[in-house]
Design a protein around this nucleic acid. Structure first.
Length: 804
DNA sequence: CTTGACCGGGG
DNA sequence: GTGTACGGTCAAG
C-alpha cells in the first residue's frame, strides 16, 4: 500500500528486544495513519586514538563481547567505517549500531574504556530525532509512505514501512484540526472546561448556566468523560492552551485518577504521559500535538515582546490588540461561592480558550516551521529553549554536511565555561538625561548574524592552522581564517537569503491568505534561528561552544556602531543615544538627510551588512542614574501618533502596586508631551488621594506567588507574613497561591504590616507614597530637578498652591 | 561585588 | 527516555 501523509509525532517502542519506530501521520484528507519502521537502528560513533586506524579498531570491537552491568549481553548489530568531518579535518570513525536505543549509552561507556578508543560521538541523540534527521523526513512535510498494511485500533490506516520518499510539493500549508481548552478549578475541583475552535465554542459546566454555549454536566466525572469524548470526536490534531503543561494537565491527571478513570487522549487511546525535561514536564498525547503556548512564548516569543509579564491577558493584549479585562481570582471564587454572575463566569472561562486559540493561529504555524527547520517534533519545538532549538538545527545541518557533532559538555566543563567570566557585550552610548526632540532611530539589520557572515566567524575557522587569509582582531590573540566559508556563516547566509526570497514572495501574495501566513511563519522561524547563533556560541551548554567567536562578534558589533556614530558626527548630526545595534540621532535636519546618512554608512559596510531607518519620534525622555549621569537602557519615546514606546521602566511588573505603575505611566506621557508641570501635578494629586485614605485597596495590591507552604520560608517577606496571618484566621493557603497584599497602618516592620487585601482594613499611605509612588515617579522627575520632598509638597516648589 | 534563594504561567 | 536542560532579580553575605 502507498499513502501520502505528514508526520506529526514520532516515538518508539521496544517489542521482544526489537525497536519499532512509530510515525503518527495525517493524510491530506485528514485521515490518521500509523507507520511502523523496524529497519532503522540506533547507533553512535567511536573515534580511534591517533596512532590507531579505524579498520583495526572495528575488528577489535567485533572480536570483543560486551555486557551490561547486570551481565546481560550488549549486542552490536553491525559496525561500519565512516569518513566524517571533524572541525576542518577528515577523520575515519567506526559506526556502531545496537539493537535498542537504551543500549547506546551503555555500550558507549564500554567502548570508551577500550585503550584504542579516543572518545565516542553522537551517543546522546534521542532515537526519534536521529531518524528524522537521517531520513530528512521532517515533521509536517509531505511524504510518500510505502509498505504492508496492518490493522491498528484508532487509525484509518496502518502500515509497516518499506520505503519512504520526501515529496517536493511542500508548499501547501497543512490543515490540522486545532482545539484550544482551558480549565476552571476551584478548591481543587474542576468546575468548568471551555473549548474554542473555528465554529466551535463550548463550556462544560458542573452547574446549570443559561447560555447557549454552555453544556451542563451532572458532575466532575461526567465533565472529564465529555472532555475525552470531545477531543476524540473532533479528531483533534493540535490541542492547545496556555500553561496547560504545568496547570491544566496536572489537574486533569489528579482528577481523572480521583475518579478512577484514565486520561486516554492518545490517538490510539494511550494515556497522557508527562515527559520530564529538566525543570519542565510536557504533557504528551501520542499521535496528537499538544502544544502549550506558554513555554513557546516564554522561550522564543518573549524577547520580542514589550510586556514584562507573560500572563495570557498581557500577551494577548500585545499580540492580538485585545483589551485586558481580567477578573481577579477572588472575584471568580466569590461568584462561584455565591452562585451569582455565573453567566459572566462562563464567558470568562470561554474567553481564555478563545485567546489561546487566537494566539495559536499565529504561533502554531511558527512552531510547525521551527519543527521543520530543526527536525524536532512540534511537541519538542514548542517547549525547547532558544539554545536547544539552535543546537537541533545544527545537528540536522551537520548530518547533511557529513560533519561529526561535538559532544555536549560535561557538568564540569560547563562549570569551567561558566567561570571563565563574561565578555564585553554591545556598546551603549551614554545619553544626556532629560527630554530630546526630533529623534530618528536607525538600526542594523540583524547585526550579529551579519557580522558573523562578514568576518567568517565560526568555531572551526578560529585559529585554523595552515591558513592564508587571516582575519585578526587587534584586541585579542586569535583570528578567523577567511579561506573557506565556515559552518556557522554558511548556515546564517543560507537562512538570511532564504528569508529575503520569502519576504519578496510574501509581498506578492494577498495579505492574510493561507499562502501569506505560511510564508510569514517560515520567514519568522528563519529569523528566530538566524538571530540565535551568536547567543548559542556563548551558551555554556552548547556543543559548538566558542567563547572566542561570541567575543569577536560583539567586538565587531561595537566597532560598527562606533564607526556609525563617528560618521554621524562627521556629517554634523547630534547623537542622542545608541545601544548595541541602534543609533538615535537628533535634530530637524536629520529627517531630510537620513538617506544621505544611510547611503554613506552602508557604502562603507561589508557586503551583507546594512543600517536601516527604524522610525521618527517627536520626543524622547532619558532618565538619569544616582550620580546624575544619563542612564542607559531606560527611556521612553513618543511618535507623531502619540504612541509611546517605553523601555526599561519597571511599570508593568506585578510586584509594584497599580497606583505606582499607573502614576509612572501618566507621568511619562506628560513628560513626553512636554508638560512637566502637569506631570508633577499628577504625582501630587496621587499623593493627596493616598493621604486622604480613601483609595480603593485594589489600587494598592501587590502580587507575589507563594512557592511553598508559608511556614517553610526562612526569610521574612511581606507576602509570606500576609499569608501566615491569613492562615491564622483559618484560611487555607497552599503553595502556588498568588498572594495579593496591602501594607497596612501601624508600627513595626513593613513585613509585619502586610495583610492580604481581603483582611486589610486600612493602608499605610506613607508606605505607598515613599516606597511605591515616589520611587517610580522620581525616576522620571528627578531629571527635572524634583525631589521626593518637593513632590510631597514639603518643599518650596510653587505654582501649585493648593497642594502645599 | 559575589552568592544563594526565589520566581515565572495557571485557578 | 541514546534522559536529568533556564535566566533574571533581589536580599543577604
Amino acid at each position: 500500500m502507498e499513502l501520502q501523509a505528514r508526520i506529526i509525532d514520532v516515538d518508539y517502542v521496544v517489542e521482544d528486544n526489537e525497536v519499532v519506530l512509530r510515525l503518527f501521520a495525517k493524510t491530506e484528507q485528514g485521515e490518521n495513519l500509523l507507520v511502523h519502521e523496524k529497519n532503522f537502528l540506533p547507533y553512535f560513533y567511536a573515534v580511534p586514538e591517533e596512532e590507531e586506524d579505524a579498520e583495526t579498531l572495528e575488528e577489535k570491537i567485533n572480536e570483543k563481547e560486551f555486557h551490561r552491568d547486570d551481565g546481560e549481553p550488549l549486542e552490536i548489530v553491525e559496525t561500519d567505517l565512516k569518513e566524517k568531518i571533524d572541525g576542518t579535518e577528515e577523520i575515519e570513525v567506526v559506526k556502531i549500531s545496537t539493537k535498542v536505543p537504551p543500549d547506546v549509552p551503555k555500550l558507549k561507556s564500554k567502548i570508551y574504556d577500550m585503550p584504542e578508543v579516543s572518545h565516542c560521538r553522537e551517543y546522546d541523540i534521542p532515537f526519534y530525532k536521529r531518524f528524522l534527521i537521517d531520513k530528512q523526513a521532517l515533521p509536517t512535510e509531505k511524504i510518500r509512505f510505502e509498505g504492508e498494511n496492518f490493522e491498528a485500533e484508532g487509525f484509518d490506516y496502518a502500515l509497516e514501512l518499506e520505503d519512504l520518499e520526501i515529496l517536493e510539493n511542500n508548499e501547501e500549508k497543512p490543515d490540522f484540526e486545532k482545539l484550544a481548552f482551558d480549565l476552571e478549578v476551584i478548591d481543587d475541583e474542576i468546575i468548568m472546561c471551555s473549548f474554542y475552535s473555528e465554529n466551535f465554542e463550548k463550556v462544560l459546566s458542573t452547574v446549570e448556566i443559561d447560555e447557549d454555549f454552555v453544556e451542563t454536566v451532572e458532575d466532575e466525572k461526567r465533565l472529564l468523560e465529555r472532555f475525552l469524548e470531545i477531543v476524540e470526536e473532533r479528531n483533534v490534531d493540535v490541542l492547545t492552551g496556555y500553561n496547560t503543561d504545568e496547570f491544566d494537565f496536572d489537574v486533569l491527571r489528579d482528577r481523572v485518577q480521583h475518579h478512577g478513570m484514565e486520561l486516554s487522549l492518545g490517538r490510539n487511546g494511550e494515556r497522557m504521559k508527562f515527559n520530564r525535561r529538566g525543570r519542565f514536564a510536557g504533557a504528551r498525547l501520542k499521535g496528537r500535538m499538544h502544544l502549550d503556548l506558554y513555554p513557546f512564548i516564554s522561550h522564543v516569543v518573549s524577547p520580542g515582546l514589550e510586556s514584562e509579564t507573560l500572563d495570557l491577558d498581557s500577551v494577548a493584549e500585545e499580540m492580538l490588540g485585545r483589551n485586558k479585562d481580567d477578573v481577579s481570582f477572588e472575584q471568580m471564587e466569590e461568584w462561584w461561592r455565591e452562585k451569582e454572575n455565573l453567566e459572566e463566569f462562563a464567558r470568562y472561562a470561554l474567553k481564555d480558550s478563545e485567546l489561546a486559540y487566537e494566539l495559536s493561529d499565529e504561533l502554531v504555524p511558527q512552531i510547525i516551521e521551527l519543527s521543520r527547520i530543526t527536525g524536532l517534533t512540534p511537541f519538542d519545538a514548542c517547549r525547547l529553549t532558544y539554545g536547544q532549538l539552535t543546537e537541533n538545527f545544527l545537528l540536522k545541518e551537520a548530518f547533511r554536511e557529513n560533519i561529526l557533532a561535538p559532544n555536549r559538555p560535561t557538568r564540569n566543563e560547563r562549570r569551567r565555561r561558566g567561570n571563565q567570566g563574561a565578555y564585553e557585550g554591545g556598546f551603549v552610548y551614554t545619553p544626556e538625561s532629560g527630554l530630546h526632540e526630533d529623534i530618528c532611530v536607525f538600526d542594523f539589520r540583524s547585526l550579529y548574524p551579519t557580522v558573523m557572515v562578514a568576518h567568517n566567524i565560526s568555531p572551526e575557522t578560529l585559529n585554523l592552522e595552515s591558513c592564508d587569509d587571516k582575519f585578526e582582531l587587534e584586541e585579542f590573540d586569535f583570528y578567523f581564517c577567511q579561506d573557506e566559508q565556515g559552518f556557522f556563516p554558511e548556515l546564517i547566509e543560507g537562512l538570511v537569503e532564504s528569508r529575503y526570497r520569502l519576504k519578496d514572495e510574501m509581498y506578492e501574495v494577498e495579505e492574510g491568505s493561507r499562502e501569506y501566513e505560511r510564508i510569514y511563519s517560515r520567514q519568522q522561524a528563519q529569523k528566530i534561528l538566524a538571530n540565535s547563533f551568536y547567543g548559542y556560541l556563548g551558551y555554556d551548554g552548547a556543543r559548538w561552544y566558542s567563547k572566542e567567536s561570541a567575543q569577536a562578534t560583539t567586538y565587531m558589533g561595537r566597532k560598527y556602531i562606533e564607526d556609525t556614530i563617528e560618521t554621524a558626527e562627521e556629517m554634523g548630526f547630534e547623537i542622542t543615544y545608541g545601544d548595541t545595534d541602534s543609533v538615535f540621532l537628533k535634530g530637524d535636519e536629520i529627517k531630510e538627510r537620513k538617506d544621505d546618512f544611510l547611503d554613506k554608512v552602508n557604502s562603507e559596510l561589508p557586503e551583507f551588512m546594512e543600517l536601516e531607518f527604524e522610525g521618527y519620534f517627536t520626543r524622547g525622555f532619558f532618565t538619569s542614574t544616582e550620580s546624575g549621569q544619563g542612564a542607559k537602557k531606560k527611556y521612553a519615546l513618543i511618535d507623531e501618533d502619540g504612541e509611546m514606546k517605553i523601555t526599561g521602566f519597571e511599570q508593568v511588573r506585578r510586584d509594584w502596586s497599580s497606583i505606582a505603575k499607573d502614576t509612572q505611566k501618566q507621568v511619562l506621557r506628560k513628560v513626553l508631551e512636554n508638560k512637566v508641570d502637569e506631570a508633577v501635578e499628577i504625582v501630587k494629586y496621587t499623593i493627596e488621594r493616598l493621604q486622604s485614605g480613601d483609595l480603593p485597596l485594589d489600587d494598592l495590591k501587590i502580587y507575589t506567588t507563594l512557592t511553598k507552604p508559608p511556614e517553610e520560608y526562612g526569610s521574612t517577606s511581606p507576602h509570606v507574613e500576609a499569608a501566615k496571618k491569613a492562615m491564622d484566621r483559618g484560611d487555607d493557603v497552599s503553595p502556588e497561591t498568588t498572594i495579593d497584599y496591602v501594607i497596612t497602618r501601624g508600627g513595626g516592620s513593613i513585613s509585619s504590616r502586610a495583610e492580604m487585601t481581603k483582611y486589610a482594613g486600612s493602608y499605610d499611605a506613607d508606605y505607598y507614597i515613599d516606597n511605591q509612588v515616589l520611587p517610580a515617579c522620581i525616576r522620571v522627575l528627578k531629571v527635572f530637578g524634583y525631589t521626593g520632598d518637593q513632590l510631597k509638597g514639603k518643599g518650596k516648589q510653587s505654582g501649585l498652591g493648593r497642594f502645599q
